[in-house]
Structures are given as C-alpha cells and as structure tokens.
Design a protein around this nucleic acid. Sequence first.
DNA 1: CTTATAGTCAAGCGATCGTCTAAATCGGCG
DNA 2: CGCCGATTTAGACGATCGCTTGACTATAAG
Lengths: 226, 226
Amino acid sequence: MAAPKGGTRERILNAAEQLFAQRGYDGASTRAIVAKSGDTIGSVNYHFGSKDKLLAEVIRRRWDEIVEARRECYAAARREYGGAPPVEAVVEAIVAPYLERAMCGGRGWRSYALLQARVLYSEKSYTRNLKALSEPIAREFIGWLAESLPGADMRDLGYAYQFMIGAMVESCAEIEVNRISRITDGLCDAADYGQVKARLLAFISGGIRATVAAGANLSVESLKSA
Amino acid sequence: MAAPKGGTRERILNAAEQLFAQRGYDGASTRAIVAKSGDTIGSVNYHFGSKDKLLAEVIRRRWDEIVEARRECYAAARREYGGAPPVEAVVEAIVAPYLERAMCGGRGWRSYALLQARVLYSEKSYTRNLKALSEPIAREFIGWLAESLPGADMRDLGYAYQFMIGAMVESCAEIEVNRISRITDGLCDAADYGQVKARLLAFISGGIRATVAAGANLSVESLKSA
DNA sequence: CTTATAGTCAAGCGATCGTCTAAATCGGCG
DNA sequence: CGCCGATTTAGACGATCGCTTGACTATAAG
C-alpha cells in the first residue's frame, strides 16, 4: 500500500490506531501496521521503541483532548447556571465531547472510540496506561454529579457512573458495527449523532435520577429493617 | 499444572473460557490453554477441530442457558401481571439472569461474562457466532419492551436497548476488575450482586422511560418545525 | 569537501503461533 | 488373551511473531 500523507510517525500512529481497533492488540501485528502505513518495521521501533509503547502513544494522543473538552464544556455549564448545573448538563459535558468526536470526527476518532472499548475490557499490562489516566478523571466526574445532586448517596453515584460509562462506550463502539440498525431493520442508525446523542443523554440522566431515587429507597428500607 | 477434575473436553473448555476472557482470543494461545487444563495440544484439535471452533463452543455452551432463563423469567412476569408486565419487570427478566450468573455463578460464569464483553467489541470472524446468536434474541427483547410501553416509538426502544446492553455488559465485565471500588475508595463493590442489581435495574428502567419521553418530545419538535 | 545527525531500509534473529502426523495408550468385548 | 475403536501423546511442520542489526540515504553545519 502506498504511503498515506503525513510524517512517518503520524502515518504509523494512524495505521496502528485503526488496526488495533479492528483486530485488537494481539491481532494487529507490527508488520500489518507498517504494511498499511507504507513504512517498515524498523521505523516503528525507532520512533516508539516497542509495540507496547506504540499502543500507549496511540491512546495518549487523543486522550488529553477529550478530557480538556469535557472540562471546558462543564465550566461553560457552570457559568451558565451560576454554580452546579443540572444533572443533564453534567452528563452532556461528560458524554458529548466523546460521542461527538467518535461520530463526527472522522475515521481516526471512530477507531479510537472502538479501541477504548476494547482496552476497557482487557486485563493485560498494556491497559495500565489507560486505567491510570481514567481513574482520577472518574473521581472528578463523579464529583461533578455529586454537586448537582446534593444529598445523593455517593454509592449510588459510583454505580450510576459505571452504568453511564457502559452505555456511552457501547454507543461509541457500535458506530462501525451498527448492530442496532440490522436489529431494527434500519429504523435506528448507531452512527447518527443527533439521534443517538439526544436519546443517550436522556437515558443516562433519567437513569442517574432513578438510581439515586432507588438508593434512597434502599436506605429507607435498611432503616426500617433495623 | 495438574489436570483439574472432569473429562478432557470440559477441562479444555473451562481453561479456554478463563484464558480467552483474561487475554482475548489472540492473546490466549492453544498451548497456554492446555498448560492450564493439563492436556495436550492434539486433544484440542481432536475434540474441537480448531481454535476458532473451540471459542465458538466456549460461547455456545452457556448461551442457551441464559436465554432460556430470561424467557422463563419473562413468562413468569407475564403470568403474574396477566399480560405485558411493567418495564421494570421486563428489564429484570433480561438483566437479572445474566447478572446473577456473572456475579454468583462461580469463576466459569464470571469469565464468560468478561469474554462476552470482549467479543462484543471485536470485529473478527470468530465473533460471527455470538452475533448470529444475539441479534434474533435482541429483536425478541425489544418486542417485550414495546409491549410494555404501548405507544412508544420503536426507534427510541432500539436505541434504549443498545444503552441497556452497554450498562449491563459493563457491569458484568467490571466484576473482576472492580474499577469502581478503587475510584470510590471501597464504597462501591462491582461484585456485590444485591447492590449492583437494585441500582442497575433502576438505572435502566428509568433510562428507558426517560428515552421514550425524550423521543416523544423530539417528535413533537419535528412536528412543530414542519 | 568532511563530518555528524536523523531517519529509513532489508535481512535475519530466536521464539512462538496453529495445525498436522504417526505412534502410544486405553477400555470394552469376543 | 487378541482385537479394535476411541483417545491421548510427543514431535515436527511452515508461518508469523516482536525485535535487533548494520548498511544506506538525506540534510545541514563546519
């Protein structure tokens, strides 16, 4: 395959991003990556040192941008509401920057979203990077939710955050596969940003509110049984 | 490693289930599998023909049981309510049989749940099996939801179903990793069936209701703009 | 021009991959 | 016992893996 545009380093990163997403870390060989990018194996180890570090760089490359966009979106919501915004705005700040890039950001972002879903459910050492990046951020996001839901039990918010991530990751990972389109005979389109965003935000926000309400009931029941 | 109990076929299936879940299909070599089960490579190809077919059998082995349990749970809810049960009962029929086995069914079921999450986000040929199994079932489940939410737009239900699967798969895949426990300083436990089930059912049911409501608003807006 | 630096390249290293072959082993039956 | 089908085994096949090596090219400074 002829060499795509860009410097060697970016060519390799783009090819690796796409193949890691499609085939997984072990399924995408260094040779397949350089065959796609039009480079040679030696260049990979010259620029990145190893396959592990290549994956780490693929992930790191786009991570900061998403986190920054989320923080900006949240800060804008805070300014608009003069303090803690409603849950819906917090959810949008966390979900929309990710979803928007995955669906409207071109092939690179689409691959990145699927790659994140893959890495999320891996247990190998090369996932340490993403986990180390994501866990402090998760604390920050749960803090946002807590401030917008005063009185909510932190346990409910913790679980609800996990459910939110699941729904969001699934939505991003389904973009290329589009299972839901086949299941609904084309009625739904997993790649339609407007359609998915409106419903995903409604689903998560409603789900969080319902979880907090159910958690309050659980607490009442535990008091009654005591 | 000494051979665990059971026949050769089951020993290999159990070892493959665990290693496929931990390392992924490409990351778990046939040699590593038989090293864990205490058998030899030849036995794998004698009993299963190939590594592909071994994975297919690992998935198929537990799939039918879950689907059957879901149908029985739904049928019981229909009997109880004398027709279409409320959304909460439908969600419980779909989620609980899966979640309960993943959390209370021993190591085998725990590995199976993680393996499903991995396969769900793979694009390789060996995932065709699970996809061929899951898509007709998805139609059936969405039909259940539709009957319990008369008047709901089928598009809303399709998307909501996708979000539900995401939240459920994430919850099952997190059992071993337990990220949420670290994030919340031990306040949450992703492996606590009672805690997770109550909140996951509340999250999904509330999310579905909110999605349907938001979809209705979207339709109204599209009418207004027309 | 020489020299230094950065980058790219083909070739090959040992290790491991999935699969196959043929011999060894086992259990039940005449 | 001998025999036979079922099962298990060790060993080897070619292919491919991640990574390294040493030579080659390009560019710019002295």
